[in-house]
Amino acid sequence: MTPLKHNPYNLVITGVGGQGNVMASRVIGNMLSIHGYRITIGETFGASQRGGSVRSDLRISEEIAFSPQIPKGRAHMIVAMEPAEAIRVLGELGNPDVKVICNMRPIHSVNVICGDFTYPSAEQHKEWLSDLSGQAWFVNTTEAAVKLGNPIFSNIMLIGALAGTGDLPLERDLFETVIARWLSADKVEKNLVAFDKGMSMVKDDKRDG
């Protein structure tokens, strides 16, 4: 077992109901299980498909299993499927060293749609995210996923992006092994394309900080 950069390593996957967040956390958890790490995933869903925030806390450790909730201010990596959600999670779990991967496609809440709240510009979000983290990658996975045929591939691209940072041992063949447990061969192929695309996004992106 390769020693982890942090023990436990605290990873957050965040987004809005319906973005495939829970699936992404399960895929990552299963990949890291194969390496022999202890995994606990805490998920907040329930009424979440109805437009609410969805957050998965992944605790990756070497010996003892940790709790399903990351303690305040102790995230190491935040993978956000939506920029406002990245900021929201930083509020609770952020710290000056945390890393952030953020899909920049906004999903406006009803509070924004009706005009009670203003949604910041992408530039503003980027500036804040960079300032509140040690390192940040901004990607456009929704756009790329639509090109691939379905916006739901966005979550797989983000797994690829996370793998691309090299922070956790998320090898491509592990990804294939894990999704092949659930999906048919033709779907596996398409998901691998999405994974590779996500990985290249992080590698091509000019790193911030």
Partner: peptide, 24 residues
């Protein structure tokens, strides 16, 4: 967390993460 980070992050959550009420 440092007081400085706490203050900064709370401010940005206020402006940068608009409420997300549950809706149909």
């Amino acid at each position: 967390r440092s007081e400085e980070y706490e203050k900064k992050v709370n401010e940005r959550v206020f402006f940068g993460a608009p409420a997300r009420d549950l809706t149909f």
